[in-house]
Design a protein around this nucleic acid. Sequence first.
RNA 1: GUGGCUGUAGCUCAGGGGUAGAGCCCCGGUUUGUGGUACCGGUUGUCGCGGGUUCAAAUCCCGUCAGCCACCCCA
Length: 420
Amino acid sequence: MAESFKTLPGFRDFYPEDCAHRNYLFSVWRRVAARYGFKEYDGPVLEPTELYKKKSGNEIVNQLFCFDDKGDRAVSMRPELTPTLARMAAARQRDYRKPMRWFSIGQFFRYERHQKGRGREFYQFNCDTLGEDSSQADAELISLSIDLMRELGFTKDDFQIGLSDRNAWVHFAAESGLTEEQTLNFLQIIDKMGRTPAEKLESSLAELNLTKDRVDAFIAKGATVSERIPQVLQSLEARGLSEFVKVNLNIVRGLAYYTSTVFEIFDVSKGMRAIAGGGRYNQLVKLIGNADMPAFGFAMGDMVILDLIKETPHANQKMLEAIHDQEAADIAFILADDDRYDDLLACTQEARNAGFSCVTPLAAQKVGKQFQAAEQAGTRLAVVIGSEYPEIQIKSLKDRSAITTQKESLLATISKTLDS
RNA sequence: GUGGCUGUAGCUCAGGGGUAGAGCCCCGGUUUGUGGUACCGGUUGUCGCGGGUUCAAAUCCCGUCAGCCACCCCA
């Protein structure tokens, strides 16, 4: 028996309908980024493993698709874009006017277990501002992320932005006398607070000579614990976007390179993992590329957001309509007399030359079948080529109305009918 | 790495010791030149794999593998 092949764990096949979903998402990402004046860039899919170790420490190797290439270089499939971006930005920092507004859409790889919203291969939209430290830059990107969600059809009842300032916690830790190592540990505790049982939370805080009461009291102060948060909030307020944002100091975002503002987008009712996240990283470009360049960025993956779209009826509807508008052919040429196939091809080519999207039968088929196929594909017009040729029938698939025309005026009639 | 659940047609699943099933999808047809419905017909299975119990296993038992979900981690 023939061996049957499957995708590797965590990898996906993209059948046409999956590709349509993906491309719809990409088109929204590109459209909104363009709306904010961002330029698209990309980097290599394979990078030296060292690049990621430098940013994130040696433990990260467990989560990398890494191997030695034929030149004995330790290389990794990229798990994220930010180190690549930092390298690129630093290398040619003098070539671009600041602030640099850059975005990218690419495929990434992480060696971890496959589960809902998470695979070993995924696409990610990355959006960064480099060379600008103002809080307006933070707000600009948060605003962009809100517009992404709105463009996908979501409302304030579907998602929310959680806004925080990692720096506020670093100060809190310093005032509490924590060492640098203890601070990282502490930040992780804060990040997980909502999901940790009260007892365990108390005991892990106690190891740092802290109490839940003190932490809660700090959180209760809200935006006032940060210099940055109120500025960002005010910018969003001026844009009329404040209803999407809520201060949530429990957000600190995984690894250590964020330097102040951090934010996440999460869904309101489905309890999925974070849809997107990002923040300010003013030291990373220096660490990777030895150029002093403050930066703010965020990323959104394709898996969680597509799950959320599919589970949110109004967003799903919007996606399906957009896909239909984009994919449906203008014209189905229908062969009603086998002897007219060459004439049908001539007409089809003429229409294609004029820019119409056309499908033709590739083998003899009953007229009824041809109409059925056109109907199902959502084609707008059917053009029937039969024994009356050069007289041609044009039917609107939608209202079933029909008109006849001559070959000479076919294109003009098609244009007119499609426009009406 | 840890735990829970699930493996039967391309897909969603029913059947719980005695001839392998339904719906959907796909293909064909309903007098061979006109479309969403309806009707008729058709293809596809080592019942995940291996062993055990039994006259008999998709079904019960043991093992194993895979998938999903959660934990860990999350750039």
